[in-house]
Write a protein that binds this DNA or RNA. Structure first.
Lengths: 231, 231
DNA sequence: ACCTGAACACCGTTCAAGT
DNA sequence: ACCTGAACACCGTTCAAGT
């Protein structure tokens, strides 16, 4: 019984883990703008300064959050074909890559402002690198060298982050009524409170991913064919 | 002589234009994080509250800045071939589209944190739509309908913003020494003070743009060919 | 038309000190 | 190992009032 206070309400010692979980809660409920160190401290029933024992600064905390958001890409829905073909080298990399891209989109959409958080953590090199690793791995079997696979993966990640970021900021803008002149002429649900998605967003996402994979496919075939100079 | 004070130093009435120019100056010299209303006011030798006569809020100011940054895409370097072929419908849209993408990249790189500023203005629907308009126009001659051209343009813009944003945040991170473990192992120039660019950044940019245009090209040819079902 | 002065309700971060 | 208390140096925005 030497652990916490004896039944009282205060003084609940926290772990780094607790802080991240609480922060994710604020993020998802109120958005990145309201995720302040002071607010987070208040929820944990602690002084703001206490957070600096767990994290060097806010940026580091956000990086941990980004890592968490992105963890979900591990649960890519895989078809049986893909599972069996995965061991055999050269399964259909296009499908696997598309699946990774969608998994990333889903992971980002699962939390409010997820794309922005991941985007900045990644740019600062503080984390959230998992999607690039996985995409690189899904592209390689297409017969591309490591360097090419890596920058192709980065291109896809850039597109996904840009697309979802756009989508999420619009979701928030809509729900706040900040909307400007055009661009909001669909009389659907009033308040997108849950992490839903803009109507035709999926279609334009699909289109973009298709372009990138088709582009890679062309490269692939050009490299495979004996000697056919590209135009 | 009823205009400003008679030779004194203070009381220099400002226009909305002045505010934007001063803000762009701060942005380029010190970055987005240091572009505060108070700092901007100080530079203009005015109280912070004065700024709210010119702009409803900071977001609106940033949108104006984004518009300015993006204006530069009007000066796309055009080859003579393109100029002449432009009037004739169906010139080489691939070259024109690539040129637009590069023009956008250049415009964003011309100001510190340019990509982030434009990115958020665009997502909020508050401005910076020019690049999408222009890209849509450059893609259309490829024989795509308006809708397809539009979302293809958006895909390219997403990639460019993501790529340059990444590049710029890394530039800033490097110059501040925030850098994490890996990802920074090139012993080149010490401090990238000017709006330069990361070494191999151009190559991976080129690669991404190539993928997207090649992907579009495939779509194009598929639609043109009599009846060849896509795989 | 453009600005001042003063206030409101906040921020992230540091640091000595406590248990 | 984890937190308090107090302080430092800031934020964006509003609003009555001035010229």
């Amino acid at each position: 019984m030497t652990q916490p206070g004896s039944g009282a309400a205060k003084a609940a010692r926290h772990t780094r883990e607790d802080v991240v979980v609480a922060a994710l809660g604020i993020l998802d409920q109120y958005g990145l703008a309201d995720l302040t160190m002071r607010r987070l401290a208040a929820i944990l029933d602690v002084q703001p300064s206490a957070l600096y024992w767990h994290f060097a600064n806010k940026q580091t905390l956000l990086a941990s959050i980004a890592d968490r958001i992105v963890e979900r890409v591990r649960f890519v829905p895989q078809t049986d074909d893909e599972l069996t073909a995965a061991s055999v080298t050269g399964g259909q990399w296009q499908g696997a890559t598309r699946a990774e891209a969608y998994a990333l989109r889903d992971a980002l959409l699962a939390f409010r402002d997820g794309a922005e958080v991941v985007s900045s953590a990644l740019a600062l090199g503080l984390g959230a690198a998992l999607p690039i690793t996985r995409l690189t791995a899904s592209i390689r079997p297409g017969g591309f060298d490591r360097r090419t696979s890596g920058i192709a993966a980065a291109a896809i990640v850039h597109f996904v982050l840009g697309h979802v970021s756009h989508e999420q900021q619009r979701l928030q803008a809509d729900s706040l009524g900040v909307v400007a002149e055009a661009a909001s002429a669909n009389p659907t649900s009033a308040h997108p409170t849950t992490a839903g998605s803009v109507p035709q967003a999926v279609e334009s996402f699909e289109f973009g991913i298709s372009l990138l994979i088709a582009g890679l496919d062309v490269q692939h075939r050009q490299a495979s064919e004996p000697t056919t100079k590209p135009v």
